[in-house]
């Protein structure tokens, strides 16, 4: 709270303010980061296990195993989201469960399930990308600009 604002308060209010500040739950940054690290790392290790599974039992190389791995992770995220487990993980994992592709899947799938009551077309169809849409928009646009700059630089700048 800004200093000049505090001066306007009565002593009782000031006292309360200090009390409140003391009691306010601070964002435990270190703890949050540790949780994010552990959960995010675990999700990525699971992803690695899935891609080894595809490489070992099917004809996928390190490069081509990426796509089926991502699809499988999104599938798992659908199951966990539907059963309500993913939200519980997200409560203590924070970014650890949001940043991996499962978090993207969770955003899409939970929006789809939540808006089901409004009907499939107007509810599910139009609300699916409510949360994930900005990721797609800015990702695509940034990629477009970067690829354009790079192509122009290599093809015409390199002449």
């Amino acid at each position: 709270m800004a200093n000049e604002k505090r001066k306007k308060l009565t002593p009782v209010q000031q006292e309360y303010h200090l009390f409140e500040k003391e009691r306010e739950t601070k964002r435990p940054i270190v703890r949050n980061c540790a949780c994010a690290f552990l959960v995010g790392g675990t999700i990525c290790a699971i992803g690695q296990a899935i891609s080894y599974f595809y490489m070992y039992f099917f004809d996928f190389t390190e490069q081509t195993a990426g796509n089926p791995t991502v699809a499988t992770m999104v599938f798992l995220s659908m199951i966990l989201t539907g059963l309500g487990v993913y939200d519980r993980i997200a409560q203590f994992a924070g970014a650890g469960s949001a940043v991996p592709v499962t978090g993207f899947g969770n955003a899409v799938i939970s929006a789809a399930i939540e808006h089901r009551t409004e009907g499939f077309v107007l509810g599910v169809g139009s609300n699916m990308f409510k949360l994930a849409g900005s990721v797609i928009l800015f990702g695509t646009f940034a990629a477009f600009v970067i690829a354009l700059v790079k192509t122009v630089a290599t093809q015409w700048g390199g002449l």
């Binding site: 990426g66 991502v70 599938f75 539907g82 399930i113 699916m128």
Partner: peptide, 25 residues
């Protein structure tokens, strides 16, 4: 642009819809 990325988005769309069919809010 979407040559390589199709897996994540199409999986999210398909499984999102299936999830909406299977699960209740």
């Amino acid at each position: 642009m979407f040559e390589v990325t199709s897996a994540g988005i199409s999986a999210a769309i398909v499984f999102g819809f299936i999830g909406a069919l299977l699960f209740r809010p």
